[in-house]
Design a protein around this nucleic acid. Sequence first.
DNA 1: GGCGGTATCGCATAAAGATGCTATACGCCC
DNA 2: GGGCGTATAGCATCTTTATGCGATACCGCC
Lengths: 220, 220
Amino acid sequence: MGVAPTFAAMITLGIIEDQLAIREALCEYLDAQPEFSCVLCAASHEEFVAGLAGLAVLPTLVLSDIGLPGRSGIEGLALLQQLLPAAEVLMLSVYTDAERVFEALRQGAVGYLEKTTPLPLLKEHLLQVAAGGSPMSPSVARHVTRYFRPQAAAPLAGLTPREQDIVRGIEDGLSYKLIADRLGLSLDTVRSHIRQVYRKLQVNSRTEVIAKSRSRPSLW
Amino acid sequence: MGVAPTFAAMITLGIIEDQLAIREALCEYLDAQPEFSCVLCAASHEEFVAGLAGLAVLPTLVLSDIGLPGRSGIEGLALLQQLLPAAEVLMLSVYTDAERVFEALRQGAVGYLEKTTPLPLLKEHLLQVAAGGSPMSPSVARHVTRYFRPQAAAPLAGLTPREQDIVRGIEDGLSYKLIADRLGLSLDTVRSHIRQVYRKLQVNSRTEVIAKSRSRPSLW
DNA sequence: GGCGGTATCGCATAAAGATGCTATACGCCC
DNA sequence: GGGCGTATAGCATCTTTATGCGATACCGCC
């Protein structure tokens, strides 16, 4: 933070990282940048939270490791957002497995970077966060793009177009009557299609159809 | 494409972009890189598909604009994946609105970049795709991270813990009977809770509860 | 100590859904 | 031409849901 005044455009940083060498490298490098001021560096989530109390200027951007002793970076996300509602949290981790990535995003992380990210690139990413972006390492982003591609293993694959229309109606919460109206069919025709859908999907109620069709990896 | 032999490590590119200046800039710049060989550049999706027939070497990576005359880049994604099952498609667009981003990812795009991406950075991103990554411009990624944060506006917030248990049962496709068994309740108690849930959520069927509870921006 | 909210349970009835069986019509394919 | 799959439709019947109108019990609160 040095002697320079903290002017408005400066981004105040918080860093949570248990490995001493990495923490110091991050702090020193980033604090040396004119755009950043590192206001709090901690070796654990608990330490970080405790340190917040004594700060005159709160961080607006927190860089957090995931594999921490005590409360993990992901577990601490909710608390962090409560204590620093204006701050954004960027995860920095050696782990890039889908579980952790999704859980972090779900808990409100604004981005997710590999720990191997070189410092100058990391700086770029931090600036992007400040500019409204959400930096993700490519391998992290790959999990995300995969998530959005459900039609590959979609259980609705074996259904005819008409049957899929019906299923869409069910997913939208419509009654048989409303589905019939929407598709311009008779009630009994809707019944027929649904019967067929039930046979193909091996179920016997509308809610089961929904449960089957949105078969996401149960990450939630 | 040049005279150099196409060796295994080389990435064969396809480019779909209607604006002549941009298309040429992309082709020329990328083809000049040692890592890439641009095998097909087209001004429209239709032209690209037609051009595939005459190729000796198929592209393994396609860079596609979205705002194209005729078939849009998103509409063409499915066809592209059918014709080039081994290829990955990276979207390049001036539009970064959530609708288009999600639709593209849903249709199987491997990444999504802003058109303003400088060429050297674009090259980096292309290499990342080849390395199994999914590059996304930060503003694009922001849509994605926002998507994964549903608990903020969760409509189930006003429900009591017990009522949420019931809703979970409904979401799992269970009948009243099974929900009662799972929670160790009588059928009538389940009915009572569901009645309450219906009142709070302003609905009147189990499928509507599901439709409300997973209130995603109806992108699917 | 009463009031509001939650959680539990019961009964009754009407509406919606699930299921069995049947039937016509169209398109496709061998 | 006959079989197969799809889309349409009807009817009968039984089950499940949805809804109305109760009840008892516990807990926190002012």
